[in-house]
Design a protein around this nucleic acid. Structure first.
Lengths: 208, 208
DNA sequence: GTCTATATGGCGATAGAC
DNA sequence: GTCTATCGCCATATAGAC
């Protein structure tokens, strides 16, 4: 079994992910990235020219993966209930293992929102297409004629916020890492249940 | 009507809020804060000694207000359904008017989680007390014997995340400021409905 | 490709006149 | 209390030897 030997460039990119994810653009130091990668500081500039370039590479990698998965799940042929379960489980699992990621992405988007256009076109992702698909399924499978946008945002909120708020859960409620792991595990079943329960009630009482 | 004339110190603090909220600790510049307040840079040091002190003052102000309101609502004598409505409406209103706040607070907590202890003790806030109160009401009013923690986190998620994700909503879905205002307005009724619907289903089917 | 050395600028903080 | 001037440090980035 031949071991994967990363090139210097890959080592730098991995180190940059670690540092940018936890410290953000302004807080990160090129020296720290170099140390983390075990290379000389000048090499970082040699491969990526400047801090902005390196940061963009890190951001595209992080956000691109998440967006692609989002699209993959919601454009698939699964029934809507299964999609919700799959999405919630996948996102909670992935984000809780990379818990710096969501905060990093939101910070980046609030500072440089233009970066997202590049990624959407480069990866050929269309959020409108995805929303249309959800609306169609909500209508045909759940027999609800409602705007799917709020539902969609609710799914994202319930999956992402609890990971985003990890430091808050630890410092306010004093949860340990073990308790947090249990908490996230529970949410993988509780959240889809919660959402489908809420939707079922609309079925009985189609006010909208 | 005598106009409120802010002291220099107050002007600096207000300016610091604006700059720290939007740029974070590392991104903020003492010079920018001074410019924003219309004073000389040295005056900022004169009143607050250093950047850390100033930042702590800003953080305590922001987070303290939100925590106090959270406690006030959930420890009040309102029925649980009304509490949820009140909370959702208040938080969406307040946060969407100060949309930098939630991201600012989460960043701060992930970098210096120890700051929260000070605030909790200084403001005499007890999260455990609040959770106990919710459990009690969920049991007596909704006749559900379930752990209120997930419900509580769901309420926070559905209220806070959509504001936190404002830049995401704007850049991915291309929402304008007007569309966002409508969106947040809709959520003030949709979210409590969604939550209470979900809880009602547990009532019919008390698996837990 | 990888290193050392250095240019260049910006930032937080202080000293000291008024 | 408010200003000007400046110190000392550190960060990004580049030049150039190997």
């Amino acid at each position: 079994m031949d071991k994967f030997i990363p090139t210097t460039e890959e080592r730098i990119l991995e180190a940059a992910k670690k540092v940018f994810h936890s410290k953000g653009f302004d807080g990160a130091r090129m020296q720290e990235i170099a140390d983390e990668a075990g290379v000389n500081k000048s090499l970082v500039h040699y491969y990526f020219r400047n801090k902005d370039n390196l940061f963009n590479a890190v951001f595209e990698d992080a956000f691109g993966k998440l967006l692609a998965k989002l699209n993959e799940i919601f454009l698939s042929d699964l029934p809507i209930a299964t999609k919700i379960e799959t999405f919630v489980t996948y996102y909670i699992t992935f984000l809780s293992r990379n818990s710096y990621l969501p905060l990093f992405i939101l910070n980046c988007l609030s500072e440089k929102p233009e970066l997202i256009k590049t990624i959407l076109t480069r990866k050929q992702l269309s959020p409108d297409h995805m929303l249309a698909r959800i609306r169609e399924q909500v209508r045909s499978e759940l027999h609800l004629d409602i705007d799917p946008f709020h539902i969609y945002i609710n799914i994202l909120s319930l999956s992402i916020f609890p990971v985003l708020a990890k430091p808050l859960l630890m410092s306010i409620f004093g949860l340990s890492n073990e308790q947090l792991a249990v908490f996230y595990e529970e949410r993988k079943t509780i959240v889809p249940e919660f959402i489908l329960n809420a939707l079922k009630s609309y079925e009985n009482n189609p006010s909208k």
